[in-house]
Design a binder for these strands. Structure first.
Lengths: 158, 158
DNA sequence: CAATCTAGTTTAATAATGCAACCATAGGGG
DNA sequence: CCCCTATGGTTGCATTATTAAACTAGATTG
């Protein structure tokens, strides 16, 4: 690679998200964390990834404020990894990924679980995107607008 | 890597999606395609990725039925890459990624664009997840249920 | 018909990933 | 106190992926 491309300071928010959590393991670690997994060894067992990789990923997630370490909680003298607010904010992304598989995968019969609402136990609806005045939007109904920014000099830039 | 782990036949739909489009470039290629980009050189210019990688990614996306090649359209004798229905279905994932950055990024002032609805030009709302009976759900209101599957033998499995 | 554009392929270097083996600390048994 | 196991890593090395840059070959343009 001669240096792997970083999107950390890209002006596209999608690229920025991908830079933060856009690899297989980070996303799956957050998925497990949302299930309540918090211990190093539990992550390692459930995901089956190499421990050194887990170490690196956990550290990166902590550095980015997606996970935080807590001294313990279940009595044992070890630490645990807990989601921050930012980390819990990844939930819609995971739901979107899940629903894409459910809708388009060629072997949906291999999918083992369904996302349901706790209260009724029924499958959730598809994620919906609305305009401010309440119209349901699809990709074609949207556009990108440059964010108007007033810089120090007072000039208007994109 | 000694063979990168594949999630192609994982039973988790999130893992399956990640296996298909869970790398930086694939996601960004689809983003560009949603903007109407369809030519090899355009993708390469806009994303700034190495051409060999673009070749591999485009081929993988076509193999997976996310893009399809069409013989031409603007007269020139070259081919173009177009999104399939499955490809356009990635849109909510990209919206979720975008909104996560918008909400949690530490330098939101570096984000250059806003997603608006075409009709009014106003920013869209956050993606919303509803239960079948219309309640707005957050992560804590949901659970995973094993998908009941009736196998050949007639036994019920998870 | 020479120059340039398109859509790649090839090559060589560098970076990331994975496996396995090792290490340090805590707690428990004897 | 000594040995054993579990937790939470670290280190080394082999393999694989990504990249930039050079090269091709057909299509288009001047």
């Amino acid at each position: 690679m001669v240096k792997r491309t970083s999107f950390e300071h890209d002006d596209c928010p999608i690229a920025r998200s991908l830079d933060a959590i856009g690899d297989w393991w980070s996303m799956l670690i957050i998925r497990e964390a949302l299930f309540g997994i918090s211990r190093f060894s539990e992550f390692q067992k459930r995901l089956g990834l190499a421990k050194n990789i887990l170490t690196v990923r956990l550290r990166a997630l902590v550095d980015q404020g997606i996970l935080k370490t807590a001294p313990a909680s279940d009595g044992s003298a070890y630490q645990e990894y807990l989601l921050t607010l930012k980390g819990r904010g990844v939930f819609p992304i995971l739901v979107a990924l899940r629903q894409w598989s459910e809708e388009f995968d060629e072997h949906p019969e291999e999918i083992a679980t369904i996302l349901v609402d706790k209260e009724k136990g029924k499958p959730v609806r598809k994620l919906e995107l609305y305009s401010q005045d309440g119209r349901l939007l699809s990709a074609g109904d949207t556009a990108l607008k440059p964010r108007a920014v007033v810089k120090q000099g007072g000039r208007l830039t994109a």
